[in-house]
Design a protein around this nucleic acid. Structure first.
Lengths: 222, 222
DNA sequence: GGTGGCTTCAGGGTCAACCCCGATCGCCAC
DNA sequence: GTGGCGATCGGGGTTGACCCTGAAGCCACC
């Protein structure tokens, strides 16, 4: 893979700009137009979905606040049309709720308009390549939301019923490994795995490994 | 991009190392010891929780796979003790499930052991400052999990391979129902369930119902 | 009327999962 | 040193998961 020159004519990223202010679009275009191909522009939700579906760009630079809806609405509309592209949110806002909403909708990055043009070009290139791009503080918002999106359960008293070895076996079993695989990974015999597995199921009052998988998944042990 | 001097005595970060291999701990310590204070070490879950709660470091460098549990178990234990610190996962694994599990538990970053020592020091400084630190590909895993989508999935062409009846059977199997249960629910014989199950696995190129469960769960079919 | 796909079922088999019983060994506490 | 517990194995068993082959009835389509 030759990744040397992203400005290379053959590798130039095709970009659509979505922002309700023509001046902003013009500004962004002049800043990044040398490095990428701006193949479309839109200033509202409907127009954005149309132009994105028509052009199928590599990256959509998406303002979060739009007339007639917002950034997530655009992403949802494009997803519904089964068009594959990558969204990079570009906003004046750095509020946690805006960041989270647009990332939850499926954007792969979020940068504010205070970004330097060289950094923006870099960000476009990176999201097009599958990376996630955030300014540092914003990434923290997403992780907080992600970690907090689930009940912060404490450590199970049930888990303490299992010995260390039983816990190791339990984890592997819950991940779907066959007894033989578990035995190989732990360098013990299948019979020992069977013994531990039996103890695990009995102690946790489960009847088979399917229930064990769900039990472990519920507790985020796998 | 590091301009200032994080080696400043007054601002040196206090770090705890958690890894079951003493050699790895020694190596990491020698690499970063000039820039940070390693105030504690541990090689298993219990020991990690103890030493973290005792020292309350700025950052915990946490191996994901540990005897007697795993990274998330350590984070959960420290959280349960209401000790405030920041976790940076440091692992040989770059598997999506490991990354997601430890981030979901509350880690603020994830780097692999292939990282250069200068980058590791930078990562420690950044997570201590509240930033999130990832190698690019790993950040994508987290966003995928957060958005609840998978990279580059359209609405499955694979699902269309299955007939209506096969889809019904598939859903029940993926939920963990035994053949006998599926047969009862659909009012058909076990043999018919077996036939459908076999077709489903063959068409989806899966080898057993555990993979089927994960396949279906990934696509939110169950 | 033939062809083919979907659904239904059967007989036969292999292997994994899970159970029961038993056993040895090492460690640690009383 | 005796007893408990954890970890390690074995024999032998039942049940479930999964495969292959074969076949029947139904229905749509040509």
């Amino acid at each position: 893979m030759q990744s040397s020159a992203p400005q290379d004519q053959r590798n130039r990223k095709r970009v659509v700009l979505v922002d309700d202010h023509a001046l902003v679009r013009a500004g962004v275009k002049s800043e990044i137009g040398d490095a990428v191909d701006v193949v479309g522009e839109a200033d509202d939700v409907e127009g954005a979905i149309d132009v994105i579906c028509a052009t199928v760009p590599d990256v959509v630079l998406l303002d979060v606040h739009l007339p007639g809806g917002n950034g997530p609405a655009v992403i949802a509309g494009v997803r519904a049309a089964e068009v594959q592209t990558t969204f990079l949110a570009l906003s004046v806002s750095d509020a946690a709720e805006d960041v989270i909403a647009v990332i939850r909708a499926g954007a792969r990055g979020y940068v504010t308009k205070a970004i330097a043009s060289s950094e923006l070009i870099d960000a476009i290139t990176r999201v097009a390549a599958g990376d996630a791009v955030f300014s540092p503080r914003l990434a923290g918002f997403v992780l907080d939301a992600f970690a907090g999106s689930l009940p912060t359960d404490q450590v199970d008293p049930e888990l303490d019923l299992l010995t260390n070895r039983e816990q190791e076996v339990m984890r592997l079993l819950a991940r779907g490994y066959a007894y033989k695989e578990v035995a190989k990974r732990l360098s013990i015999s299948i019979k020992t795995v069977e013994t531990h597995a039996s103890s695990v199921l009995r102690k946790l009052q489960l009847s088979n490994r399917h229930q064990l998988s769900r039990w472990a998944a519920d507790r985020r042990l796998i």
